[in-house]
Design a binder for these strands. Structure first.
Lengths: 304, 304
DNA sequence: GTGTTGTTCTTTCTCGATAAAGGACGACAG
DNA sequence: CTGTCGTCCTTTATCGAGAAAGAACAACAC
């Protein structure tokens, strides 16, 4: 049976939207809502029906209006856990298991066990593992199961070897961009976002993760390549969970990284290839160190 | 329900093995058979029971012997289709559909439709698509379906951009290998295999595909990196089906490629980095041309 | 005609069930 | 005590079902 996570998320979003619209406001058409809530019209109608049932909106057909934003504000939201698709939940739980719990490299991964532990059917686990395989952290043995390769130092080193190749290539392509490319403007805006973040780094340091990913993706978009973009999914995922897991020195590390980005951005905007490559290498080297420090020792070390 | 493809393949293999052993020969232990047939002991026992039932082997427990290789030779093998796991069958059928049939870039991929067409449950299709996603030929739209990006010229270009970066890096690492590395010997053996193939190229030209893949993987093993190895899976897959599909000039193309490989190998064995890189670039350029010639035009061209 | 809503059909996502394959344990032989 | 086989339990690979989400079509309004 399919869960109604899409509906629940849309319902929560719709409540916020209604509050913004204000009492008595005419509701946008179903098609317009469909775009704003990012769901199909079928789901929009289900949401509207529920809102009407709660007395938040009134009228019918084309003549719907907001009846009570007080009720909308007070209405109980669905808990976030119920608004996420199963795949996202499984991913979170799995990463937590791997990074926080026991999970030594070489550990056998048991579909049935994970299914029981996460409270989902084995199908959901299988689907996750199949998609997750491409991140290079697990290995499949047909008819037998999966083995955790784990987030080891080797993993971090191999990841960064590729990352450096890709980033250098993309940085070069970026410098070679025509002067009228819209990417220059985009880069300038990223620069300002970095400056804003740096000014409030003490409060906002956890916003860096997202900015980091966007920055590197813009550089890559100078000369798009699907395999490089796919590879960035791996990096984004690793850093996402790494940040969540290793809070040590987070503010400090991120402040450093923002400054490195700024040097890198300035070099890019100055079209100075040599300086770009220097800044790029410097930034990647420190990112690599950060990651390696928190990786697990892997199978080679004789620790028991 | 799980299909017994493993059993059927093992049974077929066991029949061949029995013929080799000869009448009256003592059978290897269950553990030994398990290794030779590449299955669990449970399956070995099932195979033995069936062989005994057919009068091919006799005796019980530790005292089993071959009773009749005539019966073994005559016994009906299971058809190959029944010895392949579902996933392999789905992959084949899907690639055929994509490369041979209509399948224009942008085509919607319908799980239910494919399931009906291939005669499997939707779960099987989903599992395949999830694993196949990493090859960059399809794209997922949650709750809605998949879209075929297709084997376009862009795909081939992006593939080869990465391939060149990886191959150059690995070729450099190979040249820098210590003189006592076992890989030198392995490379020399590959050289001889190439020479043997070249001598009989008119009959054996379809053996090139496999040799090609092994050759490039050995080069990569000079400095192993899981992401590069994973990327080679993509190349291997593409070339595998490409060869099956585009038979045009196959003999001619492969003869050329073998000669390019030999130049490349000789440069490697001579530890001449400049020459290695030249040979490598030359080989990749011609492989790229081959692939591009048979790629589909993609979405950009205005052909209807 | 363009855009709206009402209606119906199709497809995706997830579950639970079941046979096959794998793996663990004990008993026994040399 | 090492290797073998017999037995039993666990896990994987696949199917089919069913509710949710998406999509197509028709009817209607401006």
């Amino acid at each position: 049976m399919k869960p109604d996570t899409v509906f629940k998320r849309a319902f929560n979003d719709a409540l916020e939207l209604v509050v913004v619209l204000g009492d008595g406001a005419q509701l946008p058409s179903e098609n317009a809502l469909k775009v704003r809530l990012n769901v199909s019209r079928t789901t929009v109608r289900k949401v509207l029906a529920r809102l009407a049932g709660r007395g938040v909106v009134g009228g019918r057909g084309a003549h719907r209006e907001v009846r009570s934003i007080v009720r909308a504000a007070k209405a109980k939201r669905f808990p976030v856990a119920e608004t996420e698709p199963l795949s996202a939940q499984v991913e979170k739980r799995f990463m937590e298991w791997m990074l926080r719990d026991n999970a030594r490299p070489g550990t056998a991964i048991n579909e049935l066990d994970l299914a029981r532990r996460f409270g989902v059917a084995t199908t959901g686990i299988r689907e996750f593992l199949n998609r997750f395989q491409r991140f290079g952290l697990i290995e499949r043995h047909p008819n037998s199961g999966w083995v955790l390769k784990g987030f080891t130092t080797d993993f971090a080193l191999e990841l960064f070897e590729i990352r450096e190749m890709f980033e250098m290539r993309s940085a070069r392509a970026f410098v070679a961009l025509a002067d009228d490319s819209p990417l220059w403007r985009e880069m300038d805006m990223l620069r300002q976002e970095h400056l804003r973040l740096l000014r409030k780094i003490d409060q906002r340091y956890h916003d860096f993760s997202d900015l980091d990913s966007r920055f590197h993706r813009v550089i890559n978009s100078a000369s798009p390549n699907r395999f490089i973009e796919d590879f960035y999914d791996i990096i984004t995922m690793i850093f996402h969970y790494h940040y969540q897991w290793n809070k040590q020195d987070e503010r400090q590390r991120n402040a450093v990284a923002v400054r490195e980005h700024l040097a890198y951005i300035d070099a890019l905007l100055g079209r100075d290839e040599a300086m770009v490559l220097r800044a790029c290498v410097a930034h990647l080297a420190s990112a690599k160190q950060t990651l390696i420090r928190s990786s697990s020792r892997g199978l080679k070390s004789s620790e028991g």
